[in-house]
Design a protein around this nucleic acid. Sequence first.
DNA 1: ATGACGGTGTGGCACCGA
Length: 260
Amino acid sequence: MKISTWNVNSLAVRLPQVLDWLAANPVDALCLQELKLSDDKFPLQALQDAGYHSAVFGQKTYNGVAILSRTPARNVVKNIVGFTDEQSRVIAATLDSPAGELRVVNGYFVNGQAPGTDKFTYKMKWLEGLRNWMATELAAHPNLVLLGDFNITVDDRDTYDPEGLRETIHHTTEERKHFQALIVLGLTDAFRMFDQPEKSYSWWDYREMAFRRNRGLRIDHILVSEALKPKVESCTIDKLPRKNERPSDHAPVTVTLKSL
DNA sequence: ATGACGGTGTGGCACCGA
């Protein structure tokens, strides 16, 4: 089973690229973030023609998440249970495979702007709400992946300038503590289960030729539960779509699970 | 460097992302 995450930065603009990518990478599920469109504008038919069901939690202009899957999603939950949120940032669903079921939690984590701002405070509260809810989700679903755009670098390997960006947004001790709180629940960063190329990133600024200079961050993550850990075969970042015309600023990340 | 680029919605720009 292959599950992917991709922040597409507007599905209206990126639909052709998503369809091309799915044709080349027929994954079992693709979790999207930053749809930037309301549910009525979601390209349900085009994705169905490509062989995918869609569970959608859209929002006009900002945010918006969806789970595309080969088999229909069950028990869909929108946003963090127990945390009131005006913004469409989380969608969870259960997917079936011949070998069992998989709970997929897809999140577009809060950006947070800068430490000390209201948006940073919102990010911290949001992360606390997510952690609390994930404890319950994990108890109910042993086979679980939490994936998406975390807007957090885990450590110095995840950033092109660990010194210069120390304690700036996506690099603060406070954000990383919240990430570790998810790890403590029994989740594992699938990407770091394997040897990876140095300077592996999943996001590059559109400005200053950041992609060509590989000045990026690894902020898109796939965390797997304890029960899934022995099944993880690989976890990779696909930089190819970032080389397209009109690319998203993020690259898709894919985990492969054996015997599921 | 309060910049850059690219998205949205609005309206000839402002706001936001990371």
